[in-house]
Design a protein around this nucleic acid. Structure first.
Lengths: 338, 338
DNA sequence: TTGTATGCGTTATCAA
DNA sequence: TTGATAACGCATACAA
């Protein structure tokens, strides 16, 4: 077995209490004895037992990260930024991918909670549902540890939200499109998560604002957004009954498919056909032509989220909700006037 | 505080030993008392304290996953698959992104080791270096827990490797290209990791095989592979001194840039210019035209890796090295004869 | 099949 | 500034 605090105390000629003090950075230790102990620790390569430590401290400085699918381009980036920020604050990350089933979300949240994490971060808006009832597991979890929401909002005790104003972003960009040369705009989306509905709401508000019925211009795609051909077929189907010369998409991948659709139809982008994606992901610069997209400030959001969490864990009063504004990053699939 | 095993034993009218037995699935408990205990546990929502449990069992059923950058498309997928497989086997994942600095890799490996993980998985070939000395930290870690390598190889005790034969894949595809109409092929790459060098080796072998000097046809790009414009500029620079009409890339993102280069030059793909990427990532179907790419069997590899790990943890004899074969997925950027 | 008692390696309280 | 010792919550050897 490995060394214990007793071994170290013996070799250093002190009690375990003193060793423990040094280990935990207590100030009330004579610097000479501190040096002595540190040297012994170094020499024998001693590392405290994590379990025993957790038992004493009631914490292992570990944060649970829940995510429906960390292989998704956007969520992967979110998880990465969060992990890096946590690391910088001396915390580790317990990652758990739940999938989309509500049962699994609850199951894994409780599982990860039983591992005595110091907090839980819910990455992505898929964890918040419309019904109070379905969100109850989050409220329950928040009774034990602070719960942080990225891209979602819920007004519960001990739950903190960091999000981007998807509603305004989509509203603004829709208005812009409606005033452009390609004003026959449709909206395609795939998710009715919290942020999914906010985006849809922004689009609808803008369309309704010019006296049209938004429901006629918003189309939900059910399927894998990365199966580009399927999405393109979906658009071809829509085109049979609706005329459109621009597409706003809730995800970059959907927008990419719209570009493929335009290419198939021989439409010139952006002259005759304009496309706007969402997330400003790596796909934007990889597509031809490069994709205009809404940047929803992922990295600043994750910073804010982790900062807020650290404050909460230190007992400070922190904002319950942090709101960012998105911005349009124009590339080659649009030609708005400046 | 939350309930302890003592509370449960009291409420169920048995000793803590019996409760513990039920908790750990021991068979020598009368089924009626087992039922009784289970009911109490259910009723009060008792969950054992993870730290105390870990102390007794010397394990928390947690695996450390180390990765240089989990936001990379390929690595993110790898992490995701691994996490899912571990979950299916009742293990949790402690994720740690180290970045590319060797010091940090060592630091975090030791840190994560001190958290008493049952094993460590090194995702991606960046953890293995050419020098024995730089790999020593891995050998040391393997003295404590089994170390699993994805996409890398190292012949140490208690280290298990799962990888794809990148050498052969690149060799085969290069030969194919050399025999095609677009036989002026160059290879662009960005990494000299273990697998990076294997790919380069395969390309070189094929080119040398026809009596040419491979070094004249392989170009290393130093920079962010997702900065498409930079990569395109890099190719433009190469074109000043080298004639080429096909590109094999070590990463899909680099191949995408090659497509942009072709578009800029007005070259028809695949008639006059062919491109092959690597990883068969989502970028392939997102690009226009869709990208031919080498699939290196990520998901099967991760399955094998986790299966091997589970065997090792159960004390079974398992293969030290598992080798997969890549395969070419042809799309619109190549037109090889069948 | 069940219960008792001890150990696991820390932290923290109290006294010196 | 230090040391002795009692928790912490569970697993398990041993006894019954």
């Amino acid at each position: 077995m490995s060394l214990t605090i007793y071994d170290i105390s013996e070799k250093a000629g002190v009690s375990i209490a003193t060793v423990s003090r040094v280990l935990n950075g207590a100030t009330n230790v004579r610097s000479s004895t501190k040096e002595k102990i540190l040297k012994v620790i170094e020499e024998y390569g001693y590392a405290p037992n994590a379990f025993a430590r957790g038992m004493g401290l009631h914490s292992l400085k570990t944060i649970g990260i829940l995510c429906v699918d960390s292989s998704d381009i956007y969520l992967a980036k979110a998880v990465y930024y969060i992990e890096q920020d946590l690391q910088a604050n001396g915390y580790e990350s317990l990652l758990c991918c739940t999938g989309h089933q509500v049962d699994m979300k609850k199951h894994y949240l409780n599982l990860i909670l039983s591992k005595k994490v110091d907090s839980i971060i819910l990455v992505g808006s898929y964890f918040i549902s419309n019904t109070e009832e379905d969100n109850d597991y989050i409220r329950q979890a928040a009774k034990k540890v602070p719960v942080m929401l990225l891209n979602a909002s819920a007004d519960y005790d001990n739950v903190y939200c960091t999000l981007c104003d998807d509603y305004s972003s989509t509203y603004d960009v829709t208005v812009k499109m409606l005033n452009s040369d390609t004003s026959d705009v449709i909206y395609i989306y795939n998710s009715e998560s919290y942020s999914g509905l906010r985006k849809l709401g922004g689009f609808s508000e803008a369309v309704n604002g010019i006296g049209k019925n938004a429901a006629d211009y918003a189309f939900k795609y059910n399927g894998d957004i990365y199966k580009t051909e399927d999405v393109t077929a979906f658009l071809t189907e829509i085109a049979k009954t609706h005329r459109f010369n621009s597409v706003i998409a809730s995800e970059d991948a959907l927008a990419i498919a719209a570009l493929k659709y335009a290419a198939q139809k021989g439409l010139k982008v952006p002259e005759d056909f304009e496309v706007i994606g969402y997330n400003n992901s790596v796909l934007c610069s990889c597509s031809t032509p490069s994709l205009t997209s809404i940047d929803n400030k992922l990295e600043p959001m994750t910073h804010q989220l982790v900062n807020t969490l650290m404050g909460v864990l230190n007992g400070q009063e922190m904002p319950k909700k942090s709101l960012f504004n998105g911005s349009l990053v124009e590339r080659e699939t649009t030609s708005f006037e400046k």
